[in-house]
């Protein structure tokens, strides 16, 4: 979370505040979720009478993230070449949806449709990954 320098000019204060609040909320939710998952794993391992939070070894988390990444790429590619490209340009390369639309030569609506398809596929992949 970065606070801008004091001499920076904010173009749209309300939208900026909303965007910052959204970011903070997402980050908080994610760390809360990770803590919950660790707790649940620990409870499974040692039984409900145990206390405390286990730290999954760092190497395990790296392996898991790497595996998740490999499969996520496969899931994305499975949605079709254009949808995959739209998603990668937007989410990994940081282009706005307008920029992606212009670059590929399609409408923003089409970009959104492609993104919805990929997001849905990734959401269900993520859910199954968690349950595995």
């Amino acid at each position: 979370m970065r606070i801008p320098r004091s001499d920076a000019v904010i173009h749209d204060p309300k939208a900026y505040l909303y965007r910052m609040a959204h970011r903070l909320l997402i980050d908080w939710k994610r760390s809360k979720r990770q803590a919950e998952i660790r707790d649940a794993l620990w409870a499974e391992l040692v039984g409900a009478s145990s206390h405390g939070i286990s730290e999954q070894p760092a190497a395990d988390r790296v392996l898991e993230a790497r595996q998740m990444s490999t499969r996520a790429f496969a899931v994305i590619r499975h949605q079709g070449e254009r949808a995959a490209r739209v998603f990668l340009r937007h989410r990994l390369d940081g282009l706005t949806q307008r920029q992606v639309a212009a670059e590929i030569g399609i409408s923003i609506g089409t970009v959104e449709g492609d993104l919805r398809r990929v997001y849905r596929a990734l959401a269900s992949f993520r859910a199954s990954f968690d349950n595995a």
């Binding site: 790497r66 990444s69 990994l92």
Partner: peptide, 23 residues
């Protein structure tokens, strides 16, 4: 909304950190 957003957020972070290779 949070589920959908966070799922994509975490996968995007993983994909940025670990560009994939075929099995």
């Amino acid at each position: 909304y949070m589920d959908a957003t966070i799922a994509v957020e975490e996968l995007a972070a993983a994909m940025t950190a670990f560009p994939s290779r075929p099995a």
